[in-house]
Simulated assay, not measured.
Amino acid sequence: MTQSSVEAVIVAGGFGSRLLPLTARRPKHLLDVGGVPFLEHQIARLAEAGVDHVVLATSYHADQFRPVLGDGSRWGVRIDYVLEEEPLGTGGAIRNVADALGDDPDGAVVILNGDVLSGHDLPAQLEDFRTPRDGQRVDVSLHLVEVEDARAFGCVPTDGAGRVTAFVEKSDAPVTNQVNAGCYVFRRDVIDTIPAGQVVSVERETFPGLVAEGRLVVGFVETAYWRDVGTPAALVGASRDVVLGVAPTPAIGAAEAGARVADGASVHSDQVGGGSVVMKEATVEQGAVVEGSIVMTGAVVEEGARVTDSVVGPWARVGRDAVLQGATLGDEVVVSAGAHVTDERVDVGTTVPAGD
């Protein structure tokens, strides 16, 4: 491994419980966002930043990743897959993949949470990471974003030189509006200091411990596009932003018509827009309206139905003149003709009767 090489780890082992029922049969990291599996956005961005080796730390439905992402060659990177047998926390998951990384102690390793869509300048963060402070090398760099109301987040204050001074838990009186955005750059040998085979949190244990030891942990503050894609509403919002070009991503371009329709989909309506996505083998019949929504593989939206800000899960069916508003349908759900579903999640295989 050469000094100039950059590696990355994507932590993709979570169960995705906040995204149920969409994650009942698949990991959240492979859900469609803007017309492609979510991880394709992250891998394409890593490749664009000069990363040449990506390690996926997987657990839940781990067998589904390789058939979708392959060996990474289509992005010009090499992908390795490492299984996490038991949940080890954010730090434990990173330590668990150490043997798959190179052995250059000063090498840069980008760590991404596998559910964050970000447009921040990763090459600039890497350059900042490589810049010593008063002759001291940077051990860890954290991407920080500024939010209007930080009460719902743990805060990360920094001093005038960008050095992280503390990690402060959620509070009604936040000490700063800077919060952790889920992208880190680790010095390779720092990863080896995380205890192996143990449940470890980087946010609560690793980072505070490094600061207490006097290690140089810095914040890279940038207010670019950033979204935690952890709920159905956030998934729909992120997908819409990708399609409309609001969320910059090298994985795909913005859709000129305001919607993205996959090859093999059948769309017979001229009222599909607002950043919607219609995936392969899906059907939208004449007179149906699909606005700002995701219609997943094999799903059917029948004539006269109206789907707004919703997710229609794989092989689900929305009946004639039915209305979905802010709804999330699991696999193979059937919404009967004329039914209304508003701000609800419908479990896999359920039938919604016309009276609802």
Rank of each mutant, 00 (worst) to 15 (best):
246 V>H: 12
135 G>S: 02
8 A>N: 07
279 M>S: 12
308 T>K: 04
297 T>D: 02
348 V>M: 06
22 L>R: 06
135 G>D: 02
232 P>Y: 11
177 N>W: 05
344 E>R: 07
34 G>R: 02
256 E>C: 01
166 A>C: 06
22 L>P: 00
242 V>C: 09
194 I>G: 12
64 Q>V: 01
150 A>M: 08
286 Q>A: 11
122 L>M: 00
200 V>D: 01
184 Y>I: 09
95 R>N: 10
44 A>R: 10
63 D>H: 14
42 Q>L: 13
58 T>M: 11
354 A>L: 04
311 V>S: 06
276 S>I: 00
213 E>I: 00
347 D>V: 09
267 V>S: 01
123 P>W: 02
186 F>P: 14
115 D>K: 09
230 G>E: 08
145 V>M: 07
196 A>F: 15
349 G>Q: 08
223 T>V: 14
292 G>F: 08
84 E>T: 10
92 G>M: 11
208 P>S: 00
278 V>P: 08
1 M>V: 06
260 R>T: 00
265 A>Y: 06
299 A>K: 03
305 A>H: 03
339 A>I: 01
255 A>L: 03
254 A>I: 01
89 G>Y: 14
128 D>V: 00
289 V>A: 02
68 V>H: 10
146 E>L: 07
95 R>E: 15
80 D>K: 06
90 T>A: 13
347 D>H: 14
92 G>T: 08
243 V>K: 03
112 L>A: 04
285 E>A: 04
63 D>A: 14
176 T>G: 04
354 A>F: 05
83 L>E: 14
314 P>F: 08
57 A>L: 07
125 Q>D: 00
316 A>E: 03
6 V>C: 07
76 G>C: 13
303 E>Q: 12
176 T>Y: 13
38 F>V: 00
59 S>H: 15
246 V>G: 15
179 V>W: 15
221 V>K: 13
182 G>T: 06
168 V>P: 02
182 G>S: 07
308 T>I: 07
147 V>Y: 10
242 V>G: 05
343 D>K: 11
33 V>W: 08
4 S>P: 08
332 E>V: 05
247 A>D: 03
344 E>K: 05
199 V>A: 12
